Simulated scan of single mutants.
Amino acid sequence: MTQVLGIVDIIWRGRNIPVEKGAKFRQGGIKNNAVTYGRKVGRAQEFQGSQITATTNLEAGQSLGNLLDPGEGELQVLCDTGQTFVFNDAFLVDDRPEVTGGEGGKIELKWAASAGEELI
């Protein structure tokens, strides 16, 4: 039986960020856009950046300020299927996300980056 993606681990600036089920990412790169002209459809290419979204929880004694630093850094997305995606110029898109109380202090983190490097 073939294994498929189940667990995603996030490492932000060398620190493992424990994430809830449902983390997602989109690898950046060239994408095609449909262009209709006359009775034809052509394609025009553009670059689309990478997007990474994960939810973590606020823990006792944790510094929220250290987690939400607005600068750039290295972000790694490790998949339990063996792939690792490294984004060297990642940054948090929403520097001040909401912290949800009563549900474990959920914090949704969103990063943007250029195309990442895939390591297998």
Rank of each mutant, 00 (worst) to 15 (best):
M1Y: 10
T2W: 08
T2S: 11
Q3S: 07
Q3M: 07
G6K: 03
V8C: 05
V8S: 05
V8N: 04
D9Y: 02
I11E: 06
I11N: 08
R15H: 15
R15N: 12
I17D: 00
P18D: 01
E20G: 02
G22H: 02
K24I: 08
F25R: 04
F25Q: 09
Q27G: 05
G28I: 05
G29C: 10
I30K: 13
N33W: 04
V35G: 02
Y37A: 13
Y37M: 09
Y37K: 08
K40Y: 11
V41D: 06
G42V: 08
G42S: 13
G42N: 12
R43K: 03
A44N: 08
Q48L: 13
G49K: 11
Q51D: 14
T55Y: 03
T56H: 01
T56S: 01
N57K: 04
L58I: 13
S63I: 12
S63H: 14
G65D: 15
N66W: 09
N66G: 10
L68S: 11
P70Q: 12
P70I: 06
E72Y: 10
G73H: 02
E74C: 08
Q76R: 13
V77P: 06
L78H: 12
C79I: 05
T84F: 14
T84G: 12
F85H: 14
R96S: 07
R96A: 08
R96H: 06
R96E: 10
P97I: 00
P97C: 00
E98F: 02
V99E: 05
T100R: 08
G101Y: 07
G101N: 04
G102N: 06
E103Q: 01
G104Q: 00
G104R: 00
G104E: 00
K106W: 03
E108L: 06
A112P: 04
A113F: 13
A113V: 14
S114L: 14
A115R: 12
A115Y: 07
G116M: 06
E118D: 06
L119E: 08
